[in-house]
Design a protein around this nucleic acid. Structure first.
Lengths: 158, 158
DNA sequence: TAAATTTATGTAGGAAACTACGTAGATTTG
DNA sequence: CAAATCTACGTAGTTTCCTACATAAATTTA
């Protein structure tokens, strides 16, 4: 609480969330490196999803990870370049591309499991305090689903 | 908790933080609009800082709001274009630019005070749950200051 | 079953932050 | 006090997401 933005409190919450997100992602990158693994934190949602669900279309992945589909497409392009995933046309629906992990991708996931385990422990240290950050995020998202920031603002205004 | 990323839990925390940040910023924009005020949420840190501290250099503002200085410079450019701030050379140090709110900028701040008040109430509704999001952020940032994500990872690894 | 609509994917470009690097003025040091 | 270093500011380009729009295939409807 030593600068103006901290003092302005909750109004700068969007900025604070982003700052923290950036810091964790950048350090995540360094941790993968320290384990000698070539993997970027931004790839995690796609790869984690595919490792659980085997074969999915682009839009299915996008919905699953909560991203817009063009963002997902660009992640998939990077992962295809790294030969972590591959895709084939869906035979029953010509519009769809079915995405799967390659053999290399599956091996990478196995190699990353201890890293994920390690990161998870470190993240629990960081996020589990008097207030649990992950739970706080989930609770806030639930509140937003109930009634958006805008709608709440309008109700308060009346 | 209805998709894979929610289930993957804390490993996707960076993604979750960013998603929430984006959602709040976008809705913040709509709220300013709904009050008929032409103001962008990203300008808040700079303007709020200047409204408290009167006259500051570029780097002072950047440090105060916790941004890199080039980010601050581009915000200042936008604010100057909107005639919300203006700048003049520091006479005692030719390198420095002293930034101040214009008359229009000060009037805008006064007009925004009720909006900020309204937003604050809505944000408290959203963020204050079993776990308080703002406090959770502050606590997590304090933990990171004590010892970074990377260092914690390395200690756990041993 | 042809026309309208919906769904899946893709491209282009934007937003809000960042890092890397360069220059010029101020300060410190040998 | 000249040289080296530091500080302030600026530009260029990057990152990681987004929205808007386009096209083609599938599905629904009249």
């Amino acid at each position: 609480m030593d600068n103006v933005i901290d003092q302005s409190g909750i109004l700068a919450i969007s900025t604070r969330l982003q700052r923290l997100s950036d810091a964790l992602r950048k350090e995540g990158q360094l941790i993968y490196q320290s384990f000698g693994i070539q993997f970027e934190p931004k790839w995690f949602p796609v790869v984690y999803t595919l490792h659980l669900k085997t074969s999915m279309s682009v839009v299915e992945i996008a919905n699953e990870i909560g991203y817009a589909h063009p963002s997902t497409i660009s992640l998939l392009k990077e992962l295809e370049k790294q030969q972590i995933i591959k895709s084939k046309k869906d035979k029953t629906d010509e519009r769809k591309r079915l995405i799967v992990l390659t053999t290399k991708g599956k091996a990478l996931v196995d190699a990353m499991k201890p890293v994920w385990n390690n990161m998870e422990k470190a993240l629990v240290q960081i996020a589990d305090n008097k207030n649990n950050l992950m739970e706080a995020i989930i609770e806030a998202e639930e509140k937003l689903k109930e009634s958006s920031f805008l709608v709440r603002s309008q109700k308060i205004r009346q």
